[in-house]
Design a protein around this nucleic acid. Sequence first.
DNA 1: AGATTGGATCTTGGATCCAATTAAAGGAAG
DNA 2: CTTCCTTTAATTGGATCCAAGATCCAATCT
Lengths: 231, 231
Amino acid sequence: MPPTRSTQILDLLGVRPTSVQHARTVIEATLAEAILDGSLASGTALRQAELGEVFGVSRMPVREALLSLQARGLVDHVPHKGAVVVGVDPEDVVNTYRIRLLLEPEALAGSIPHLGLADIDDARRILEAMEDDPDLVDLGRLNSEFHLALYKRHPNAKLLKLIGRELDDEDRYLRFHLAELGSDQLAQTEHRQLVDLAARGATGDAVAVLRQHIGAAADTIEAYFRGRSQN
Amino acid sequence: MPPTRSTQILDLLGVRPTSVQHARTVIEATLAEAILDGSLASGTALRQAELGEVFGVSRMPVREALLSLQARGLVDHVPHKGAVVVGVDPEDVVNTYRIRLLLEPEALAGSIPHLGLADIDDARRILEAMEDDPDLVDLGRLNSEFHLALYKRHPNAKLLKLIGRELDDEDRYLRFHLAELGSDQLAQTEHRQLVDLAARGATGDAVAVLRQHIGAAADTIEAYFRGRSQN
DNA sequence: AGATTGGATCTTGGATCCAATTAAAGGAAG
DNA sequence: CTTCCTTTAATTGGATCCAAGATCCAATCT
């Protein structure tokens, strides 16, 4: 497809298509972010009128945003009652780790052969950001980004999207309890091993470390719950 | 939370809360069904006003239903332009098989130990229905149901939901091309083997058959596309 | 003739208004 | 004083109305 006149001009101006952001889009994104990073606690009731005032719009875009959030499983919508931020089911957290254990080894193995130097650098940069940044809210997101950075050259785009969703779910929980568990649970040592092995193209070893990494996290969380439910 | 009077009465009547079906809910379900089973072809433009007339309702619940369908990835929503039924990307079909190959062996292995006689009977009944029913539209759905019937005792509920979604995606494609490929591609022989091995609790053998079953399907579809894109 | 620009028309996005449902508050009867 | 019923306030669901952006077509200029 030859570039059209308009795209040439956009290039000259250095402007991206900048697809117009509609109200419901930014509202959905904002609320999703707030729920994911924990600033909107589980069980919080989301009143349409109230949110409309906050965002300076009517109830209409708000309810559509809430509807989308329901489809994403972030809020629970009870007819005529309202939307509440859905809680994190401990069982689901462990389930998510088990699913990651199925998906991510394949993602890593299929991506490493196609990783370039720039990709490795990206991953390393994320690791450094994690060490510098003490903010727990950022840590979860960075952790997700790091993992995805290593997988991103896998040819199966759908697999990557799937993993992204699982990481989001995990992330949400992580931010809640990272403080209690201690942020060393993120196992930066293993992260460094992963990126080094990936850089050397040592696929088998990298996958082994990843399996151990995710498995250990799953066990830690599970033990944490087990201890908790006995109180 | 103690049961209220009304729920007690509902229980006595044997009536489920029968959650009031809102317009947008039934519209979304109806459209989703139509898209999944192919009666709404890819690329079809979905006009809000038109659909509103069809369902005897205003545009409002229609647009909310369309929004939900977009979140589910069934329609593509272009601002101020409208919603169109999203096409099936050949690449995604193969990708979906690869993902199934990661998820379903674990699902089967973890479910077999907990399967009861009734579960096996359920699966067998679905197989019989597949043989009796020549309707291609039903075949895809029944195929999904059969697989899920074998996995349903797996303790990881989230994994099952995930597989259900993948099967839906696959299903949608299957209905389109089952006629061309021949319905014997569903490999009823392997299906029978699967349920027999599951009944005997032969987990290892069952998983092996399943791997072969899904892998063969993936290869068939991939070859079909390869042959097609060369024309 | 071809391209460009201006406007008419169509479709969606958002605001406002009304109806339906639910939860709660208050009062009457036991 | 408790329980049940009625009434009332609050909130969401749906309809209608207006604004913004997009597409299409014709008129105009090169």
